[in-house]
Design a protein around this nucleic acid. Structure first.
Length: 183
DNA sequence: ACTCCGATTGTT
DNA sequence: ACAATCGGAGTA
């Protein structure tokens, strides 16, 4: 069954200087975070709490460990297939809400670590309706214990599919519009 | 070798 | 408030 979803919430892990990143300097390159050092556009999938999988999009140049954690998405296609992977009776808005749930619903596991996200069985595509900058809210990341204040969580303002994970403070502000020459 | 704990979730 | 569940990371 083919599924599709629209990403509505992410977190950025920006590189060796990011205290909260699995690939922070103090850690270096390890077996777990190695995929973060791979080429941009590939997947970094890791297990958390020995229980859940989390899906990241690798975003840095090769050997520079940066990634974006996908925290929530809005089901577009194949809703029933997603529900079957979760639990029967789960509401649509819970289907892809939270990084562990999102991975579960999309059948993401460790086998997809390093996967090229331009190819089946899992790939990114341009959204039908692009999200303009002023629709995007920014705030602190969820569930981390270092660099707690850094405003690196991004979500679609007011979107019903965004996760409400404990610890997510509603400190919201606009992304500054970049100057034209930076576009 | 051994302890600690996490980019979470669901139940009590 | 807490269990599930396990391997990476830090310490020795």
């Amino acid at each position: 069954m083919r599924c599709a979803a629209r990403i509505v919430e992410t977190e950025a892990y920006t590189g060796p200087d990011d205290e909260a990143s699995h690939a922070h300097r103090r850690v270096g390159r390890t077996a777990r975070n190695d995929a973060m050092f791979g080429p941009p556009g590939t997947a970094y999938v890791y297990r958390i709490y020995g229980v859940h999988w989390c899906l990241n999009l690798v975003t840095g140049a090769p050997s520079f460990p940066a990634a974006v954690l996908l925290r929530a998405a809005e089901p577009v296609l194949g809703t029933e297939a997603m529900r079957a992977r979760r639990r029967l009776g789960v509401a649509d808005r819970e289907l892809l809400r939270g990084p562990g749930n999102l991975a579960r619903a999309l059948a993401v596991d460790g086998a997809l670590n390093r996967h090229d996200l331009a190819a089946p069985p899992l790939w990114l595509a341009a959204a039908d309706a692009p999200v303009s900058d002023d629709q995007i809210a920014v705030g602190p990341r969820v569930g981390i214990s270092r660099a707690v204040e850094a405003p690196l969580r991004f979500w679609v303002r007011g979107n019903a599919f965004v996760s409400g994970a404990a610890g997510a403070r509603p400190h919201i502000f606009h992304i500054p519009t970049p100057p034209d020459h930076a576009r």
